[in-house]
């Protein structure tokens, strides 16, 4: 079972939900935490894993052999991302714009281009408590293309473990890359008009991917009228409401997980997991 925890915008409590699920389940089964929010990974702040391995993640970008190049301009013409410019006596490359499609070195008539590795970030792995296998990615500063790093994190999926993905906020390529292929997606939202708008975008993204989903309302005031209307309109169940709680907020500020402040809520997260499983397999 692979569950992605997503939200249309940052700061809704996505990591709080993902970490709480992991900690709640760890009492009874093998759990894996995959932090795919590679621009701002923060699951480790709460799970405090002992990281044992650290590997660079690279993508192929073109390298020019100027002595073979005839400056024909073909590569610049076919690159959809304008990551190459051909001048009279040189080829300029802009690796930060390259999407590694491979078109330029495939089509270069002189074989003057070859793929060279460009480091975009790091994948780190270890264990948080005995039962939670932990993997996260860290995107290098200034790198704009994160999906290959998200892919590298997801590749570490262990079969047989209950896996939880902390997805990047938003609804663009990185979020899609993180959520695709999961069995179920939890959409975390806050009961505010802004929160609702982003929830709608996230719900549409998940629907387009053909993944079943449900809503978690964070900092709920117990009424959440607008979220309830949304839930009815879209036919998406509200699976959990996390009340606005001073102790939880204080724990968060100190880098402590929600379940450290409110251990009695463990049952609620276990129930949440069961509900996800039920809807996913339905």
């Amino acid at each position: 079972m692979l569950i992605a925890v997503a939200s249309g915008k940052g700061g809704t409590g996505k990591t709080t939900v993902a970490v709480s699920l992991a900690l709640a389940l760890a009492g009874s089964e093998k759990v894996q935490y995959l932090d795919c929010d590679v621009e701002e990974p923060n699951g480790h702040l709460f799970l405090k894993p002992r990281l044992e391995t650290k590997e660079p993640v690279t993508v192929p970008v073109p390298k020019v052999d100027q002595s073979r190049c005839t400056f024909c301009g073909r590569c610049a013409e076919i690159c959809a991302y304008h990551a190459l410019a051909v001048l009279a006596g040189s080829v300029l490359t802009f690796p930060e714009l390259c999407h590694s499609c491979g078109g330029c070195w495939y089509f270069c008539p002189e074989k003057a281009l070859t793929p060279a590795a460009r480091e975009i970030g790091w994948r780190e792995e270890g264990w948080a408590t005995e039962r939670i296998a932990f993997t996260h990615g860290r995107l290098n500063v200034g790198v704009a293309i994160s999906p290959p790093l998200i892919q590298a994190v997801k590749e570490r999926r262990l079969s047989g473990a209950a896996a939880i993905i902390d997805a990047p906020p938003g609804t663009s390529c990185p979020a899609i890359k993180a959520v695709e292929g999961s069995d179920f997606c939890l959409l975390v939202t806050e009961p505010t008009p802004f929160g609702l708008h982003d929830l709608e975008l996230a719900a549409e993204m998940v629907r387009a991917l053909g993944i079943k989903s449900g809503i978690v309302v964070n900092r709920s005031d117990g009424r959440d009228q607008e979220v309830e209307e949304f839930s009815r309109k879209y036919g998406l169940p509200i699976l959990l409401r996390i009340p606005l709680d001073r102790q939880v907020a204080a724990a968060y500020a100190r880098g402590l997980p929600l379940l450290a402040a409110r251990p009695q809520w463990r049952e609620d997260f276990l129930a949440l997991w069961e509900k996800c499983k039920k809807v996913a397999c339905h």
Partner: peptide, 29 residues
């Protein structure tokens, strides 16, 4: 263009043999 607009524009002008450009603001690429 979706991205790399400045590079694409510059490439076009290079192809046309332009030797001087008059504009307002130019990005690093």
């Amino acid at each position: 263009s979706g991205g790399g607009a400045g590079i694409q524009a510059a490439q076009e002008l290079v192809k046309r043999g332009v030797r001087a450009v008059i504009t307002g603001r130019v990005g690093p690429n």
